[in-house]
Design a protein around this nucleic acid. Structure first.
Lengths: 191, 191
DNA sequence: CTACTATTAGGACCTAGTCATAGAAATGCG
DNA sequence: CGCATTTCTATGACTAGGTCCTAATAGTAG
């Protein structure tokens, strides 16, 4: 027999659990971990060393830094999705990956405005003018899109006069069309 | 005369600058602040004390915690904007404040998809059904909206059959209409 | 019994602070 | 000018949450 009251877990199990615990609670100290795993602080430190997990303060620094970067990434995101092809006033293509935060928690289907946002910002990007705003849009969501799917939006300028430009955007997941829309974009410099 | 080579700033100026410096770089230590303001560490500590600014580690902890909270807040944000009135299957009103991150940096005008997002999610919220997705939308952006303006969206159910619901949304800044749209919403439980 | 791993313990050191006390320097004012 | 008051600096004692290194112990396998 190898214990009295508290059976210890074998090392590799503890290490796996340790890793997970720290991952979804980076705020925990070695001391707290030690008592929760019922081993000494030194053991926890050894485990962290072997797993390459930094100390509490470094972890917090990392999380905080990440936060800062993310905020920046979000605010200067002029185009939603990644533009992979762009011929001004002709055609453009962008790709957007649907993540958990884009879908309804109830049914896992992407909220319409994210597809709209991708299409709309592509319609803005395609136009060769400093001043562009959307005037009208007529859109259709033909198939639900789920998390992890990659939406490819293809935009095409179909008509143009001195003030208005018509852009057709069609979005696909694999080869299936999930969204289509016609955008009337206003160019020019005032109001 | 009150200096030899390095003119010191008066206390209140330093304090103001200190506050700002820390605000847009929470990662800085007292030591770095001391050398950059050309005063002793203790002075910096006193200033922080008077300004109620916590120490580096606490600041990082705060930023990290904020990050964790924000991620949650974003993911369970089912409605864009704040719903202030809701009669299921009849009418609904929401308010959204346009902030810097919603507008084009070039011209300060709100990106269309944010107005669309507010309207669309209000159209979803108004419908008394667990499963709702947008099928079609026909929208019009009639006036540009700028940062700090508050957009009031009013939604109204105008037609309904066993599968489709038509919702009209009109959005206003002050009394001026800036957006209108007709949304065809699909209810029911599959595909 | 010995070799070995896993664990624990201890001490020295570190950073980035805290709080409290004391002294020095600069400034305002009668 | 001198003196009071503000402002700044210095110092020492203490803290959390670690690092790194060495050494001792416990338990198990051959």
């Amino acid at each position: 027999m190898r214990c009295l009251l508290f059976m210890r877990k074998p090392k590799h199990v503890r290490k796996a659990e340790l890793k997970e615990t720290i991952q979804n609670n980076p705020f925990i100290t070695d001391e707290a971990l030690a008592t929760s795993f019922n081993v000494s602080i030194q053991t926890i430190r050894l485990d962290r060393l072997e797993l390459g997990i930094p100390e509490l303060r470094e972890r917090l620094k990392d999380v905080a830094r990440q936060h800062h970067d993310e905020v920046k990434a979000l605010t200067d995101e002029e185009v939603i999705g990644e533009v992979i092809d762009l011929q001004l006033d002709e055609t453009a293509i962008s790709i957007m990956e649907i993540r958990e935060e884009h879908v309804f928690t109830r049914n896992g289907i992407a909220r319409g405005h994210h597809l709209f946002a991708q299409a709309n910002s592509l319609a803005v990007a395609i136009i060769n003018d400093d001043f562009v705003v959307t005037g009208r849009a007529n859109v259709r969501f033909s198939k639900p899109v789920k998390a992890t799917e990659r939406v490819v939006a293809k935009a095409k300028v179909t008509a143009q006069d001195d003030k208005w430009t018509t852009v057709i955007v069609e979005s696909y997941v694999d080869q299936r069309r999930v969204f289509s829309g016609e955008f009337q974009m206003a160019r020019g410099h005032q109001d």
